[in-house]
């Protein structure tokens, strides 16, 4: 009612009536522009230039992209690593974050609280993943080595983190260890809020077991939450870099676990080839965006 009365007034001086809103919104918008929008736009533009921060940028059209996909052999290895890591840890992380939350949902609140803390603890403590470095350290003091030595499976310590064969599975495991994150909490919260009547109606309609209930009721009710959690997992899976850098060093042996994000830091912050780094960033953004679109299509199929 009041809105209608005020309407002419509002159009008359809409800037003045909206001024408080602009003031409340301004800090976020300015920071969002500076640190998210402009960086993305500027990397698209700079990807067509040769730029080292000292000389003026010179336009080189698609040369950066050509170099990336044809000329730079180590980049192709790194791209392959990133895709392997993303394809494995992304879906698995997404599944664990949902399945664990779904299992927990059957338990009493107190048990749920304790267990969710346990699962979330590794992501909570941030940089603590280097504990795994001790477990897989190269000498016989390492946990894996001493265990295998004492049961006689190996005769001398294995160089876990210096061996291209072992280092990738280890990084995947540590990433999954720390992979619960925000999406796990969102799933727990979402599952608790599914309306009980849905389940009761489902039981009347002939749902007999957990699987049918999951497919026909739980998943469709959780669709928007699953979209959120897949976005979080995509963001995490494509930005893996701290874990391999800490465990295997950079560059790792034969580039076996170097990722695009760690390569970016090298090309950009160490070699100052910012045009080239921008082209790599653009490729990374494009891959993430396409994955998101693909997952959105896939999720629309649940419950059908």
């Amino acid at each position: 009612m009041l809105k209608n009365v005020n309407e002419p007034n509002r159009t008359h001086s809409s800037f003045r009536t909206n001024l408080p809103n602009y003031i409340l919104l301004a800090p976020f918008v300015i920071l969002f522009m500076c640190f998210t929008v402009i960086p993305i736009v500027s990397s698209v533009v700079l990807s067509f230039f040769n730029f080292d921060m000292i000389n003026m940028p010179s336009f080189i059209a698609f040369d950066n992209y050509k170099r990336m996909l044809v000329g730079d052999k180590s980049f192709l290895v790194i791209l392959k690593n990133t895709i392997i890591l993303a394809v494995i840890t992304g879906p698995l992380g997404f599944m664990f974050a949902f399945v664990l939350a779904w299992f927990l949902n059957e338990f009493r609140p107190a048990v749920r609280t304790v267990l969710s803390f346990m699962f979330y603890a590794p992501s909570l403590v941030g940089n603590a993943f280097f504990i795994w470095q001790v477990a897989f350290s190269n000498d016989s003091y390492g946990y894996a080595n001493s265990l295998l030595l004492s049961i006689g499976a190996i005769s001398e310590p294995v160089q876990w983190l210096k061996n291209a064969e072992y280092v990738m599975p280890i990084v995947i495991m540590v990433q999954l260890w720390q992979g619960m994150g925000v999406s796990f909490l969102a799933n727990i919260s979402g599952l608790q809020n599914i309306n009980d009547e849905m389940y009761e109606a489902g039981a009347i309609d002939g749902i007999r077991n957990r699987w049918q209930e999951l497919w026909y009721i739980t998943l469709p009710s959780m669709k928007s939450m699953l979209m959120f959690s897949s976005v979080m997992q995509i963001a995490a899976a494509f930005s893996i870099s701290a874990i391999p850098k800490t465990l295997a060093g950079y560059p790792s042996v034969n580039n076996s676990v170097d990722t695009v994000v760690s390569y970016l830091a090298d090309v950009g912050n160490v070699k100052y080839e910012l045009g080239y780094a921008s082209a790599i960033s653009v490729l990374l953004f494009a891959m993430m965006f396409l994955t998101r679109t693909f997952v959105a299509k896939l999720l629309n199929k649940t419950g059908k």
């Binding site: 929008v37 960086p39 700079l46 976005v231 963001a235 930005s239 701290a242 994000v261 953004f285």
Partner: peptide, 12 residues
């Protein structure tokens, strides 16, 4: 923008 975190945006 939820998709892009501090790691992927580091260089720009």
């Amino acid at each position: 923008a939820l998709l892009f975190n501090a790691f992927t945006l580091a260089i720009p």
